[in-house]
């Protein structure tokens, strides 16, 4: 940017562009993705192991860590917001979307699993796929968008996979669709401080 005087309309354009640019820059360390993704990986893998060991009655117990993970994430970002002074529309949108997504997954998984039957995992994965997909579109990252699409395809493919393997599919999806994008965000966050 050069140091020069300019016309009023150029001046107004500059103000608009700078404000839009500042508001669209997303800065996050990927904590939500990594933490929620790992918790989801552990709980779904836990369920898969319990099912394999024939503990059918308690096989869903590992998922109780998910609401706890949601609460921890909420307080983590609440604390972080009090120290970070930037207002960012993308961060706010993703946080809001994460909360809505988390609530829907919890309600579907804990209260409507019988109604969904074999469609529970595809339904959850379709919702899951929206998170990396939306993030990819908002921060203009092709990897995220591609991962969102891959999870979406896996969601439909899972209709043809035996139900006993659904938790295993969910654990794999947690790693590629949530933890991996989180690591990418975390890496670029660290890079920006070098």
């Amino acid at each position: 940017m050069t140091h020069k005087e300019f016309t009023p309309s150029e001046s107004l354009n500059l103000i608009t562009n700078i404000i839009l640019e500042a508001k669209s820059r997303f800065k996050d360390n990927g904590f939500a993705f990594i933490f929620i993704g790992l918790c989801c990986f552990i709980s779904s893998l836990g369920q898969f192991i319990l099912l394999k060991l024939e503990y059918y009655q308690v096989s869903y117990y590992p998922y109780f860590i998910m609401p706890v993970a949601g609460v921890i994430t909420y307080f983590y970002y609440k604390k972080k917001r009090s120290t970070v002074k930037s207002k960012n529309i993308i961060g706010t949108l993703l946080a809001l979307f994460g909360v809505i997504l988390g609530l829907n997954l919890t309600i579907a998984g804990f209260f409507f699993w019988e109604k969904f039957d074999i469609a529970l995992l595809p339904f959850m994965l379709i919702l899951f796929s929206l998170w990396p997909f939306l993030t990819g579109v908002l921060i203009r990252n092709r990897l995220f968008t591609a991962l969102g699409l891959i999870v979406n395809i896996i969601a439909y493919c899972s209709f043809f996979i035996g139900m006993e393997y659904h938790p295993l599919v969910l654990s794999i999806v947690s790693l590629i669709g949530i933890v991996l994008p989180g690591i990418v965000i975390n890496y670029s966050h660290k890079e920006s401080y070098v």
């Binding site: 140091h3 500059l14 103000i15």
Partner: peptide, 11 residues
């Protein structure tokens, strides 16, 4: 009314 100073203030 100078490009860079206005950009800084807008930010």
């Amino acid at each position: 009314h100078s490009q860079l100073r206005l950009a800084i203030i807008s930010l």
